[in-house]
Design a protein around this nucleic acid. Structure first.
Lengths: 213, 213
DNA sequence: ACCTGAACACCGTTCAAGT
DNA sequence: ACCTGAACACCGTTCAAGT
């Protein structure tokens, strides 16, 4: 039988804090994730949290790096283009499936083991494709731009909000809008993302081929 | 000589509110932009603002759409690739030069005349390139992803924070990191963005050429 | 070292009232 | 219609103190 709880519980760990915070974020979203709420969930006073972490941003950073790490699965086995598209889609989906975490992710930097392993994996895929190291860094950055942009678009812009664009100025000013707006606004977000990544990889591959010939 | 101010000033307009808010945001950043501060700058009580606008988010939306509209210049005259890269860079720079506005922009949707004209311009450039309407919407979306991603990266991630990635896990786990991290972390942000857009356009152009043959 | 209690310095917004 | 005054229901965090 475990010892009765002492007057002051001394068993609160950083790990437990991160876990409790992650649950709140996943189940109730970002505005539910307050220091006071995390403390309550840990059965402790708000200021107890500050003994394990310097401020809220570093705590949320730890939560998000852990989410990334948990989503990394053993490397896949297709060709490098497929591997990259699948990896980027999986990374994106971590935050699409956890919108609270996603909205936090585009607001603050995240550095940790999960992030490092994710970046290493992108580097590895590009290396197997045959890109020289000088290009790999820039190419990886371009992939990151698409992931971040996709999160912003899909987490902060409601699905069909772009339909409103046709009505805010006279249609005579927007001759091209009428023809192209539908494919701009109505489309599966995941597929839009995969299209963009595919085009980017096409451009990269094209540059690689030209350099070799 | 103008009339003396009445006891209750009734000359506060939405336009003035937007202007004052824009100045605060540009000069002092996002955390200075509070409803109370805007009210003070307008010489009015906080609640007076709510008579002209329903909430803070719609107000900041109006500010940002106006920033976009002001940055749109007469269409350029190069080939479509150059036009697109220049347009995207200029759009991005609006928010890079105004970081407070930029950080708000990746948090909330913005719909208005400025946004509509910007989207129309992207459609126009892609149309002159010869893309069919069904592709134009998807291509425009891909461009938007890069712009949004670039804003997130350059406004929320400090320049060289990626250097820390090498130290968070044992180097034996990251064989590719050592070779490629430098080009991933040290690089002119604007140039990185232009590279990414150029690769994307390469991929798009390639698809267009293949379709025609 | 680990935690509590009270307070500070803010927020956006509602509500009721004035003219 | 346009604005004021007071208050509500919160925040993250500092500071001093307890054990």
């Amino acid at each position: 039988m475990p010892q009765a709880a002492s007057r002051q519980r001394r068993d609160l760990s950083l790990d437990e804090i991160i876990d409790r915070a992650a649950v709140i974020l996943r189940d109730e979203g970002e505005q539910a994730l307050t220091m006071r709420r995390i403390a309550t969930e840990c059965g402790v006073t708000p200021m107890a949290i500050y003994h394990h972490v310097t401020d809220k941003e570093t705590l949320t950073g730890l939560v998000m790096d852990r989410l990334i790490d948990a989503a990394l699965v053993p490397r896949s086995v297709g060709d490098w283009r497929t591997d990259m598209i699948e990896f980027a889609s999986r990374y994106r989906r971590v935050f699409i499936d956890n919108p609270g975490a996603g909205r936090l992710y585009v607001r603050q930097p995240v550095i940790g083991p999960g992030t490092a392993r994710a970046v290493e994996e992108v580097f590895r895929i590009l290396a197997t494709a045959g890109f020289p190291p000088a290009v790999i860094g820039r190419a990886a950055d371009a992939i990151v731009l698409l992931i971040m942009g996709s999160l912003v678009n899909d987490l902060t812009r409601p699905a069909n909000i772009r339909d409103q664009l046709i009505d805010v100025i006279p249609r005579s000013e927007t001759p091209h809008m009428k023809r192209s707006l539908k494919t701009f606004s109505h489309r599966d977000p995941e597929q839009r993302f995969r299209d963009a990544v595919a085009w980017l990889l096409d451009g990269l591959e094209h540059a690689l081929i030209q350099e070799r010939s």
